[in-house]
Design a protein around this nucleic acid. Structure first.
Length: 416
DNA sequence: TCTGGGGTCCTAGGACCC
DNA sequence: TCTGGGGTCCTAGGACCC
């Protein structure tokens, strides 16, 4: 908040958001197949998959993201279904990020296909070019450099930029032109046209709660006294809502913050029940997530094992160690311990297992400096031998690929 | 034809400490 | 006799986003 006077000038924030990102990348990955299919659905290929993204032509049939693939097939049997091209998606995302970094002083990735830019203070650099013209220039450059169509929204806050980007989308049946900038001072009229459900972070639950008090649109909410909103939703939520419906959002655009967690999870095509199967999957997930951790030069203190049962109820157990780890063995040992605790509590068929690492830190993998902990260290600790073994495995994997190296099953031994 | 995988942030209770 | 009062860390669950 500015205590004295008005801000000298409004911020100039853009959100660049790739259009139907997964669909577009799937077409680049497979020009002959997916590339030629107008009605295209990208998503989980297994019997239990869901739709990640659908082409506009497929959406016309009612196909939506997060819908079970089976439902999508029923709605639209003539659609072409392809799996998510994960690697190319990561590459394209990185290409967009690098292109944007050449065009803007501050770029913050918000997801695989969304990037916030703060161009405040670039007026002179861009010789007075207005924000709309800048956005069009960036859009054109992105298309040339990455082959992807990216819509850009702009305004005085992240919230306005995000909402504008959604309206800028060149969807059939709308007048989206790929770029929409809300001029300074026009925020309120822009917001007044929206429903509360259009606002980020107002999901199904909160919508329900708002609707139960007769609040469905931004205009509904603007008409309510702040004291009344406080009665209904509490001080903090009321203040948040007050700002959101006016397009106010003081959050700044900052360079990407370090990751808070890393995880892998898998839904099995058939529910798992035997201890051997479960332990094998936990081993696989643990080694994968630990390898990712080391690739990023990180260490973790907390290991979490997530389980989804056949009835879809989901439970997680976690353990925080005194000392950060990154080697395979201690990650696996902790995860197996958590699996045992889960199984002790409930032994029923399992449809999903996940292993997550959090409490991350930059980790120089040197020798331990543990003497201060004396005897109060965890039972599970990482030894120099653990680290050396993981380093060797990483090097072999790097040289021969994941399929070139296979571990002997270590689960029979009592070492864990 | 039931319901992915990868994240972030928030809350609330209990442990523990001073 | 009836019950301090914070602060921080850990665990579990849940809403939400793409």
């Amino acid at each position: 908040m500015h205590e004295i006077g008005e801000p000298t000038h409004k911020r100039r924030i853009l959100l660049a958001d790739a259009d139907a990102f997964y669909v577009a990348v799937a077409r680049l990955a497979d020009p002959e197949g997916a590339g030629k299919a107008k009605i295209l659905v990208v998503g989980g290929s297994s019997n239990r998959g869901v739709v990640t993204s659908a082409s506009y032509e497929a959406r016309a049939y009612g196909v939506r993201s997060a819908m079970p693939t089976a439902t999508a097939r029923r709605l639209c049997p003539e659609a072409v279904f392809v799996p998510v091209p994960r690697q190319l998606c990561s590459e394209k995302s990185r290409m967009i990020l690098e292109t944007l970094r050449d065009l803007s002083p501050v770029v913050e990735p918000a997801s695989i296909d969304e990037f916030y830019l703060d161009l405040t203070g670039t007026e002179r650099l861009f010789q007075g070019e207005d924000l709309t013209a800048t956005a069009r220039r960036i859009r054109k450059t992105l298309k040339n450099q990455t082959g992807l169509s990216v819509s850009i929204g702009g305004g005085s806050s992240r919230l306005i930029a995000k909402l504008a980007a959604k309206q800028a989308k060149p969807r059939p049946g709308t007048d989206g032109k790929g770029v929409l900038v809300v001029a300074a001072g026009e925020e309120l009229p822009f917001m007044e046209r929206l429903k509360l459900a259009d606002l980020p972070m107002i999901g199904p639950q909160f919508q329900e709660r708002l609707a139960s008090h007769g609040l469905k649109t931004v205009q509904d909410t603007l008409a309510v006294e702040q004291s009344r909103l406080q009665q209904l939703f509490g001080k903090k939520t009321a203040a948040w809502l007050h700002d959101r419906v006016r397009g106010l959002d003081s959050a700044s655009v900052t360079a990407s913050s370090p990751a808070r967690s890393l995880s892998h999870e898998e839904t099995f095509s058939v529910d798992l029940q035997s201890e051997q199967d479960l332990q094998r999957e936990v081993l696989d997930l643990s080694y994968r997530v630990a390898a990712d951790l080391r690739t990023k030069g990180l260490k973790a203190r907390t290991v979490t094992v997530k389980i989804r049962y056949a009835d879809f109820s989901t439970r997680q157990k976690s353990q925080t160690l005194k000392v950060p780890i990154s080697a395979d063995r201690p990650v696996l040992a902790t995860a197996l311990d958590l699996l045992r605790k889960h199984r002790k509590q409930r032994r029923s068929p399992i449809r999903l297992l996940g292993v997550a690492l959090s409490q991350l830190s930059r980790g120089p993998s040197g020798p331990d400096q543990l003497s201060i902990f004396h005897d109060e260290v965890d039972a599970i600790m990482e030894s120099d031998q653990d680290r050396t073994l993981s380093e060797v495995i990483d090097k072999l994997t790097g040289r021969f690929g994941k399929k070139g190296i296979r571990r002997a099953s270590q689960l029979d031994s009592k070492r864990y």
